[in-house]
Write a protein that binds this DNA or RNA. Structure first.
Lengths: 234, 234
DNA sequence: ACCTGAACACCGTTCAAGT
DNA sequence: ACCTGAACACCGTTCAAGT
């Protein structure tokens, strides 16, 4: 979707009105920007530039930046494949859906940050995924209210850990510090705290800083899912 | 900390160099702005205005806006009172600490949104609260790693629900729609979805939209805490 | 050392004017 | 109907100049 050089014999016709502009094209361009440069680089002007036009042109297809972000987040959610509910395996299926939801977010830099503070997502893909989660929880025999509170808690956890993950793998800001350097730095800082005032933090530095694959995420996910399982009938 | 009229006989002396500017004063002014107008209104210029000066003056005391937000979030955390760990009551104590942490955030409009994407908080109050949580979990007999992952999951949940709550009680944007109107609107939208494609969402509208005090938060909190309790030795 | 005004390089959004 | 350039009202941050 990036621009292609115009054939010279057509180049005279300045400002050929490309009919290429559309919601879809704008969302795609925005996703390119996020993937290449991160969420902070995503401005209406930057997206327009990607489409060889001006920021004002976007407003014919998109109400404002907030709507563009909504569309972007919903586009991302299309990557999730939803399993057919199997009552015997509902806990594993919920976890799989959660992993995919998180995966879809972390695959796009720090886009997850935009998901926070967006409120309930109403996009078509978001709704399909929510429906799928409810179906699985319901297949697990949970009550309507437990299902409802459950998807909510899971969604919050997925987004929050995705944000955490994106911060972790980005270092802090653009300060040029690598991830490893940053971790060493934090370890040292925690270690340097007065042990009288902070006996547990200083005593648990290793445990606090542990970063082994998705262990941290899986731990929290299991907390939630096995907690939900306790609400299922015996 | 708001300005007071200068006595007329001193007013001639224009631009009397008030020595009032300080980190503390800046954070206090910023908090006033957030409380009165919300996070989106918080700009360096707006904070400076509150202190009757220009934005540039703030940079002598604060590195940048990000640091100001860190200081703001840490200031808020000072409102939490930390209980003496009681091994018998560790689950209730953790919950109480979590409720306070969330309360401190939601007491300041949508400030919670700034806590997301801030990474691990290193402010003195944040560290004291983390230490207190670790102490209580440890008193509950949990292993170092469970304590570490536990505080992390709890912190994410507290912030995420605080953001959710602030969005909920703010309506959507400044569109002038009241909370009740917004809820009715969402209910209608959910209800209007095709039942064939969305049998669970349409069938659980009441459960999904239920908003009774802190029930939603307490449900998720209990999921996490009772999940942690399962990791405690019998 | 602290404070300031002015400037720089950006934003999101609007709007009259074009096709 | 769609697109555009220019403008409006903002941002965060820097910097030379003041005290």
């Amino acid at each position: 979707m990036t621009s292609v050089p115009v054939p010279p014999w057509r180049a005279e016709r300045k400002k050929a009105p490309r009919r290429s502009l559309s919601r879809e094209a704008i969302v795609t361009a925005a996703l390119h920007v996020v993937d290449a440069e991160g969420l902070d680089a995503l401005s209406m002007r930057r997206v327009a530039q990607e489409l060889d036009t001006g920021a004002a042109s976007l407003y014919a297809h998109v109400a404002n930046k907030e709507e563009l972000l909504e569309l972007l987040l919903d586009r991302i959610q299309a990557d999730v494949t939803r399993p057919e509910p199997d009552p015997e395996r509902w806990q594993e299926q919920i976890k799989e859906l959660a992993r995919q939801g998180r995966g879809a977010l972390v695959a796009h830099r720090d886009l997850a940050r935009a998901a926070i503070g967006q409120g309930i997502p109403f996009g078509p893909n978001a709704l399909l995924n929510a429906e799928a989660m409810l179906a699985i929880l319901k297949a697990g025999g949970l009550s309507d209210q437990v299902c409802a509170y459950g998807v909510d808690a899971l969604a919050l956890f997925i987004t929050a850990t995705a944000v955490e993950e994106s911060l972790r793998s980005q270092g802090f800001g653009e300060s040029g510090v690598t991830l490893d350097e940053q971790i060493v730095r934090i370890r040292e800082y925690f270690g340097s705290l007065p042990p009288e005032g902070f006996p547990h933090i200083t005593g648990m530095v290793d445990a606090l800083m542990r970063d082994e694959g998705d262990e941290r995420f899986e731990f929290g996910l299991d907390l939630l899912v096995s907690g939900l399982a306790r609400h299922a009938p015996a």
